[in-house]
């Protein structure tokens, strides 16, 4: 493990600040949530390159697009539900259609937003971003991976990217030697009985589930599919072929997210059943993030039970 448990949004705030120090073309935009998204750290040090647009997500995306047209590299941040929902059409019409080098990094994704409830919990953002041509979609699993993702999308890739981050602390899961590459999944292990394709906070849960299963004589592999688009189809195919049960795990609706992306590919190239763990076509609700994870069945236990049932 590379470092201790941190929220991916905190890692983002730090990474952005460091990036801003070494690259003068970085500009950052926020829509009145810079304290929560952690872009405020950059804003404090580089006020001239920081644009708080107020509670106006659509304008923020347009402004970011304009800045990119002058050769700046904009990072635009707010909560996932507002970034991808409120400003979806601006992202489609301007950022994606013109293939602009705009980085959309949203925090507070999924139900682990907690007490704020359904209005603030994006469980459909991956679907909304994934459907857009030219868009790349990345869901880092921990702070260490987040730092690498932020640097990679700035230094190694020109074009629109959506990065999905969370509010709550997540355990550190990625090994020290890990190097993030867009479109490349990380294989913790390939299982003979089952493989769990996971993203975001579900990666650590998948690892826990695999440990439990191992004690019971079930060989379950874990793959961190942090880039959801473009999907690492090579690794996916290998995982599907090597085991009896393929499971996807995501803190997102099972409609349109990682599970869907995996199914879309496999149904054409290697049709096998895909068991999906995620939010089942419903809204979130208020509660602590731990309570909500249990309530919606996003736990290692649920993964274990799902795999056991599927193997029967």
């Amino acid at each position: 493990m590379a470092n201790k448990a941190v929220a991916t949004r905190d890692a983002y705030g730090e990474a952005l600040l460091e990036l801003g120090k070494r690259r003068l073309d970085i500009v950052v935009l926020d829509a009145d949530l810079s304290g929560s998204t952690k872009t405020g750290k950059f804003g404090k040090v580089f006020p001239d390159r920081f644009f708080n647009i107020g509670v106006a997500e659509q304008d923020m995306i347009g402004m970011a697009s304009g800045l990119s047209l002058t050769g700046k590299l904009p990072f635009a941040s707010t909560f996932a539900v507002f970034e991808t929902g409120r400003a979806w059409e601006q992202i489609r019409q301007t950022v994606c259609y013109s293939n602009l080098n705009v980085k959309l990094v949203a925090t507070h994704s999924g139900i682990t937003v907690g007490e704020d409830g359904a209005s603030h919990q994006a469980v459909e953002d991956i679907a909304l971003m994934r459907v857009l041509p030219n868009m790349t979609v990345i869901v880092p699993s921990d702070g260490y991976e987040t730092t690498q993702v932020i640097n990679a999308i700035a230094d190694e890739y020109f074009g629109p990217v959506y990065v999905r981050l969370g509010r709550s602390k997540v355990p550190s899961v990625m090994p020290e030697r890990y190097r993030f590459k867009i479109g490349k999944a990380h294989v913790f292990s390939m299982g003979k009985d089952a493989n769990i394709i996971a993203a975001g906070i579900m990666v650590s849960m998948a690892l826990e589930a695999a440990e439990i299963l191992k004690k019971n004589g079930i060989d379950a592999g874990v793959i961190n599919m942090s880039t959801i688009k473009p999907l690492d189809t090579k690794t996916l195919l290998k995982a599907a072929k090597s085991c009896r049960v393929l499971v996807t795990a995501e803190e997102h609706s099972i409609i349109g997210g990682l599970g869907s992306a995996v199914s879309e590919f496999l149904s054409e190239h290697y049709p096998v059943p895909v068991v999906k763990i995620g939010i089942r076509d419903e809204f979130g609700c208020s509660g602590s993030s731990e309570e909500l994870l249990k309530f919606y069945g996003l736990t290692p236990d649920k993964i274990v039970k799902t795999i056991r049932k599927a193997l029967k």
């Binding site: 970011a64 304009g66 047209l69 002058t70 601006q90």
Partner: peptide, 16 residues
Amino acid sequence: QGLSIANGIAAGLKLD
């Protein structure tokens, strides 16, 4: 959407 984009360009030009 155009005015937001124009503003972004204008801000970028000023930075430069």
